[in-house]
Simulated scan of single mutants.
Amino acid sequence: MSKFKHFLGIDVSKEYFDAVVIVDGNKEKSFHCQFDNDSKGIKSLCKWLKEQGSTYKNTLVCLEHTGMYGRLIIRNLISFKFDIWVEMSLKIIRSIGVQRGKNDKLDAERIAYYALKNVNEAIIHKAPRMEIDKIRNLLSLREKLITTKATLVRNANEFKQFDVAATKLFEKLHKNTIKGLQKDLKNIEIQLDNLIKEDQNLSKIYNQSTSVPGIGRITSLFLICYTNEFTMYSTPRQLACYAGVVPFEYTSGKSIRVRPKVHYLANKKLKKQLHMCALSAIRSDPELKHYFSRKVEEGKSKMLVINNVRNKLVHRVCACVRGNKIFEKRQVA
C-alpha cells in the first residue's frame, strides 16, 4: 500500500515551472499553478501545496530530467523532505499513449498522472553529495574548453592548405587564447585531483575503478557522477544498459531475424568514454588482447568484440567497487 495520497507533476523551464497536483488520487480533482524557477517560487509552491492539503508526508513529486533547470527545484524540495521521482521524459510520453496538443500546464498534468499510475514503480531520487556536483560541473567545463580549443586549432589547420598568410595571422592572434585554455584545463585537473584526495569515499572508489586496465581518470569520474558513487544501479548489467553496451535480441515470428544490437537510448558520453577505454584495454591488458584476437579469428566483427570488451570493463569496475578491492590481473596461458 502506497503512503502517497497526492501526486505533484512539475514541468520545468528556464524562467518558471508549472505544477499540477492530483489530490486524493483522483485525476478529476487536480489543481494547477505556475511559479518562478527560483527559491522564492519554490517557497510559494510549498505554501500553495499546503493549501491543497498536500505535504511532504503524503505527496510524491515527479518531474522530468531537465539538466541544470531542475537542479534548484530538486535540491530545495529534498531539503523540505519531499520524496522526488526524476524520470526520463520518453518513458512518461510513451506510457501515456496517444496525446493531442501540448502546453506547459498539460505537460505538468501528464507528469502528475504518470506518477499516480506508476506509483508502485517510483524510484525516489537520492541527491548527490556536493562533491559530486562539483566534479560534474568541472567535467562539463572541461569538455567545453576542450571543444573550444579543438575548434581553434582545426580552423587554423584547414586554412594552411589554402591561405598560408591567413594561417600565420590566425595562429598569432589565438596563440594566447590557446595558452589560456591550456592553463585553465590544467587548473581543472588540479581541482579534480584535490576533490578526490580530500574525500575518503571518492578516493577509494576512484582507486578501485582506475585499477581496471583501460579505465582512465576521466572515465572513472564520469562513472562516479552518473551512478552517484555506484548507488543508482543494483547490477552491473543495469549500468551497462545505461551506457549502451548491452546487445538486445530483435526477432518476431519467422520473418524478422535481426542480429542482436545495442539500443540507441544510452548515455552517449559514457559510451564514448568506454569505447576509448576498450581500445586502450585491448592494447595494454594481455587477457583482453588475447580475447580480442581469438574472437576476431573466429569470424566475429571487430566492432562486436570491442563492444563485448566495453561490457567486460563495466562488469570489472562494478566488481571492484562492490567487492571493495583492487583489480588483479590474471595470467594468460
Rank of each mutant, 00 (worst) to 15 (best):
K50G: 02
K50H: 05
S54V: 09
Y56T: 10
K57Y: 11
K57P: 04
N58A: 07
V61Q: 06
E64G: 09
E64F: 03
E64P: 11
G67R: 13
R71Y: 13
R71H: 14
I74C: 03
R75D: 15
R75A: 09
N76E: 15
I78N: 10
S79W: 08
F80V: 00
D83Y: 01
D83Q: 15
D83W: 08
D83C: 14
I84F: 03
W85P: 01
W85F: 04
V86N: 00
E87W: 02
E87P: 08
S89R: 11
S89C: 13
S89G: 13
L90R: 14
L90Y: 08
I92H: 05
I92E: 02
I92N: 05
I92A: 05
I92D: 00
I93R: 13
I93S: 12
I93E: 06
G97N: 12
G97W: 06
V98D: 11
G101L: 09
K105C: 05
E109I: 00
A112L: 01
A112T: 03
Y113I: 10
Y114V: 06
L116N: 08
K117W: 03
V119R: 05
V119N: 05
I124A: 07
K126L: 13
K126R: 15
K126G: 10
A127K: 11
A127R: 07
P128M: 05
P128L: 08
R129D: 10
E131L: 09
I132H: 09
D133P: 01
D133S: 14
K134P: 02
R136W: 01
R136T: 04
R136N: 08
L138W: 11
L138C: 00
L139P: 04
L139Y: 11
R142D: 02
E143I: 02
K144H: 13
K144V: 12
I146K: 15
I146Q: 02
T148R: 13
K149S: 04
K149V: 01
K149I: 03
R154E: 10
N155P: 00
A156T: 07
A156V: 05
N157V: 03
F162V: 12
F162K: 10
V164Q: 11
A165E: 15
A165Y: 10
A165G: 08
A166D: 05
L169Y: 11
F170T: 05
E171N: 04
